[in-house]
């Protein structure tokens, strides 16, 4: 895959000997304009790759924080078309982040898998994470993503057997998403102690970058996972930051700034 922003970003990071922060935001929460504003802001703060969670009515891998933000976005009228349009505008305004959509296969299937990949790529998306399309079901989908120039990022869990981990890493493109804990998304103060060793072990089997997500919320855990991983994925902590600002009736600029401040704090140790 040539000229994919995610692959290019990891190549640059690797040659600079650096690790990165991958923030996750619920697309369209609290509204589409705020998400667009956040993308531009975090890009200036040194973020290279960002995940956009596509709101879904039944996200079984997500904890209460992300689930509530999905419901709020849907209640406010967010649709897939509005989110594709937001990405298109971001690109038109010169945005260069590597953008991933984390999207349930329920949504992809309904849209039509091939059509979805084409539409996402056309809007300016660089990769997809389909968390409910595990190895065994993803085989027909991966070529469709590739044909549209999209990375198909696959997940590995602590419960995944060793040989399956290696096979998933082989099939995953862009990077491998290593889930740090068996369970749902959400902030935790500490990582399981075996995570770093498990990621280091996985990296002996693959050249594909490995990023760690679920339960990372502070600079210490970011540094900890990046001892072995190529990137740290943080989600719920940002949603909490947005929730607080929304609850205080903060204007859009302030929400963007609050989120940006947390991004800066988390990315600082990786600079």
């Amino acid at each position: 895959m040539k000229d994919n922003r995610i692959i290019n970003a990891f190549a640059e990071l690797k040659s600079a000997g650096k690790k990165t922060l991958l923030p996750f935001f619920t697309a369209g929460y609290p509204d589409v304009e705020t998400t667009g504003g956040i993308l531009h802001d975090i890009e200036k703060r040194g973020v290279k790759i960002c995940e956009l969670g596509i709101p879904f009515s039944d996200p079984i891998a997500d904890g209460p924080t992300i689930q509530a933000s999905y419901s709020a976005a849907l209640d406010a009228g967010v649709t897939l078309q509005k989110l594709f349009d937001m990405v298109r505008s971001y690109r038109a305004e010169g945005g260069q982040l590597g953008l991933l959509m984390m999207v349930s296969y329920s949504i992809v299937f309904r849209y039509g898998a091939e059509k979805f990949c084409i539409a996402a790529a056309d809007a300016g998306v660089d990769g997809l994470i389909v968390p409910d399309l595990p190895m065994g079901e993803a085989e027909a989908f991966a070529p469709l993503a590739e044909a549209s120039g999209l990375c198909n990022v696959m997940l590995i869990a602590p419960t995944t057997p060793e040989d399956r981990k290696v096979e998933i890493a082989k099939q995953s493109t862009g990077f491998v998403y290593y889930i740090s804990v068996s369970g749902i998304t959400g902030e935790r103060t500490k990582l399981p102690p075996e995570t770093v060793a498990a990621v280091a072990e996985l990296k002996t089997h693959t050249d594909t970058p490995v990023c760690v997500g679920f339960g990372i919320s502070n600079p210490e855990t970011v540094v900890e996972v990046c001892k072995a991983a190529d990137g740290a994925i943080v989600g719920s902590a940002f949603i909490h930051r947005i929730n607080d600002a929304v609850a205080a009736n903060a204007p859009r600029e302030e929400i963007v700034a609050n989120v940006g401040q947390l991004v800066s704090e988390l990315i600082a140790p990786l600079a």
Partner: peptide
């Protein structure tokens, strides 16, 4: 069609 965490 489930998260990888449930596959095992």
């Amino acid at each position: 069609f489930v998260p990888e965490t449930l596959m095992s």
